Amino acid sequence: TQVHVDGVTYTFSNPEEAKKFADEMAKRKGGTWEIKDGHIHVE
């Protein structure tokens, strides 16, 4: 599962880990995350 944050791609083999990471990054940025085309995007 790929997580895209500010133009950087992080790859996780476990989708649950990817979601936890996205959640943390979104909180830090004061933003949100969503799943697009099977990838997670942090806004």
Rank of each mutant, 00 (worst) to 15 (best):
E16N: 09
G31M: 07
T32G: 12
Q2D: 09
S13Q: 12
T9K: 09
A22Y: 03
G38Q: 04
E43Q: 14
K19M: 14
K19F: 14
S13F: 11
H41E: 08
I35A: 06
K29H: 15
Q2C: 13
Q2L: 12
G30F: 02
M25W: 09
E17C: 15
Q2E: 10
G30A: 03
K20P: 00
M25N: 04
F21R: 00
A26R: 03
V3K: 00
F21V: 01
D37Y: 05
A26V: 14
T32S: 14
W33V: 15
H41L: 12
A22L: 03
K36Q: 11
G7I: 01
E16F: 08
K20E: 12
F21C: 12
Y10N: 03
I35E: 14
D6S: 07
A26W: 02
T9S: 09
K19G: 06
H4V: 09
K19N: 05
G7A: 05
K20I: 12
D37V: 02
Q2T: 12
K19L: 13
S13L: 12
S13N: 11
D6Q: 06
A22Q: 02
E24K: 09
T1M: 14
V3A: 01
V5Q: 01
M25T: 08
E43G: 12
Y10T: 05
E43Y: 15
A18L: 02
V5T: 04
E24F: 10
E24C: 15
A22N: 01
K29V: 15
E16A: 09
I35C: 15
S13K: 09
T9H: 07
I40A: 02
G7N: 10
H4R: 04
M25S: 05
Y10G: 02
D37H: 04
E24L: 11
E16V: 09
G31V: 06
Y10C: 14
E17T: 09
H39N: 07
T1Y: 11
K20C: 15
E24G: 05
V8C: 15
A26N: 03
M25F: 06
V3W: 01
E17N: 08
K36I: 15
Y10E: 03
R28P: 03
Q2N: 10
M25I: 12
G30H: 05
E16D: 12
Q2V: 13
V8Y: 12
Y10L: 06
H4I: 10
G31I: 04
T9V: 14
E17S: 10
N14I: 06
A22W: 02
R28W: 11
H39D: 11
E17G: 05
N14S: 11
K36V: 15
H41D: 07
F12T: 00
Y10Q: 03
D23V: 11
E34V: 14
I40R: 00
F12M: 01
T1R: 04
W33P: 06
V3D: 00
D37R: 00
T9R: 09
M25R: 04
F12P: 01
Q2P: 06
T11S: 11
D6M: 06
D37P: 00
A22K: 02
K36F: 13
G31F: 06
E24R: 08
K27G: 07
I35L: 10
T11H: 12
F21N: 00
G31R: 02
G38I: 03
T32N: 13
M25H: 06
F12A: 00
V8F: 12
D6N: 08
T11G: 05
F21H: 01
E16S: 08
F21Y: 05
E24A: 10
N14M: 06
I35F: 11
K27V: 08
P15Y: 15
E34C: 14
N14W: 06
K36A: 10
G38R: 01
G7K: 06
E16L: 09
G30M: 03
W33I: 15
G30W: 00
E17I: 08
P15R: 07
E34Q: 08
I40Q: 02
A22M: 03
V8I: 12
G31N: 03
K20Q: 12
A26L: 06
G30L: 05
K36N: 08
E24W: 10
D23E: 13
M25D: 02
H4N: 05
V8S: 08
G7Q: 05
T11V: 12
H4L: 06
W33H: 06
E43S: 14
E17R: 05
T32L: 07
K27Y: 08
H4A: 03
V8A: 11
H39S: 09
K19Y: 14
Y10P: 02
F21D: 00
V3T: 01
E16G: 07
V3G: 00
T9Y: 13
Q2G: 04
D6T: 03
V3L: 03
E43N: 14
I35T: 09
H41S: 08
G31E: 04
K29Y: 15
A22T: 01
Y10K: 05
I35V: 12
E16H: 08
I35M: 12
V42W: 04
A18P: 00
V42N: 02
E34W: 15
D6R: 04
D23N: 10
D6I: 02
R28N: 11
F12I: 01
W33F: 07
G38P: 02
W33L: 13
K29I: 15
I35Q: 09
G7M: 04
G30Q: 05
V3E: 00
I35P: 06
N14A: 07
K20L: 12
F21S: 00
D6E: 08
V3S: 00
N14K: 06
G31C: 12
E24D: 10
K27N: 08
H4M: 07
V8M: 12
V5C: 14
E24Y: 12
E43K: 14
V3P: 00
K20T: 10
W33Y: 07
V42S: 02
I40D: 02
H4K: 04
H39R: 04
F21P: 00
R28S: 13
V42Y: 04
E43F: 15
S13A: 12
T32A: 12
G38V: 03
G38Y: 02
F21K: 00
V5D: 03
G30D: 07
S13I: 10
M25V: 12
F21G: 00
K19W: 11
K20R: 12
G7R: 04
P15M: 15
